[in-house]
């Protein structure tokens, strides 16, 4: 089952064409990795999937992205509801400057949950799912900015989980973290794919090999190759993919 399908998706920043007719279908409850050199459009494409690119003033998009059977650019789509279902974790951990509890409760409160017991339950469940509950359960009222970088990133994942998304978009979630924190996030991603669809941009090809089920290789705004990770890395179809994964450029 595919959960997200892009068809001939093209995107311009002003006059600069950043994505060239990308078509891809992302299978649900799996990890899909986007790889490619800097500026290849992989992050841009990721941000298109929950319409975070709308925030850029000069952006223009053509083509369609179907999520749950509906084109997300259709005027009838509620972009806030889309973003609730297609959550996002950013490159730099960005917890709000408030308590750990309030960070997690932010999303549910925004969507109208005010019952204290219900919020407590969501906070605990989200933190458990993000494998950080044991570390923070005694200091939920403390400011989240006091956590380490790796803990902050898992907190951000917990925060994203708290609104019960179907898809989690992760934009190089470990690039600002040390190796130990990185491996914890990777383990977490592998656990989370039982329940969620994960799409992860990564700079690190080993990371893609380690945790992803499917890999998409982007180059100069073009989706060069997409397939099962194992296959893409062992028998790439395209010469450019082969050059990239064998380290000839990028």
């Amino acid at each position: 089952m595919n959960i997200i399908s892009a068809r001939n998706l093209a995107l311009w920043y002003g006059d600069n064409k950043a994505l060239k007719e990308v078509s891809i279908s992302i299978p649900e409850k799996s990890i899909t990795a986007f790889i490619g050199p800097s500026g290849c459009g992989k992050s841009t494409f990721l941000k298109t999937l929950n319409r975070m690119n709308d925030l850029v003033l000069s952006v223009r998009i053509e083509g369609t992205v179907e999520y749950a059977g509906k084109n997300i650019f259709d005027p009838s789509v509620d972009v806030n509801e889309l973003r609730r279902e297609v959550g996002m974790v950013f490159q730099k951990p960005n917890p709000f400057p408030m308590s750990i509890y309030d960070n997690i409760a932010y999303g549910p409160r925004t969507h109208g949950i005010t019952n204290k017991a219900r919020l407590d339950e969501i906070v605990e469940k989200s933190l458990r799912d993000a494998a950080i509950w044991e570390e923070v359960k005694d200091r939920l009222k403390k400011n989240a900015l006091g956590l380490s970088g790796g803990q902050q990133q898992r907190l951000c994942i917990a925060r994203a989980l708290a609104v019960e998304p179907k898809v989690l978009l992760m934009d190089e979630p470990t690039s600002a973290l040390d190796p130990i924190s990185t491996s914890r996030i990777e383990e977490l991603a592998e656990e989370l794919k039982e329940k969620y669809t994960i799409v992860m941009v990564t700079h690190n090809m080993q990371q893609a090999v380690r945790i992803s089920d499917y890999t998409a290789f982007f180059l100069l705004g073009e989706l060069v190759e997409f397939g099962e990770t194992e296959k893409l890395f062992s028998q790439p179809m395209d010469k450019r993919t082969e050059d990239y994964i064998t380290g000839r450029f990028g």
């Binding site: 929950n50 509801e81 889309l82 959550g87 932010y106 999303g107």
Partner: peptide, 8 residues
Amino acid sequence: EASLALGA
């Protein structure tokens, strides 16, 4: 961005 990405 984090807030918007949560659907606020």
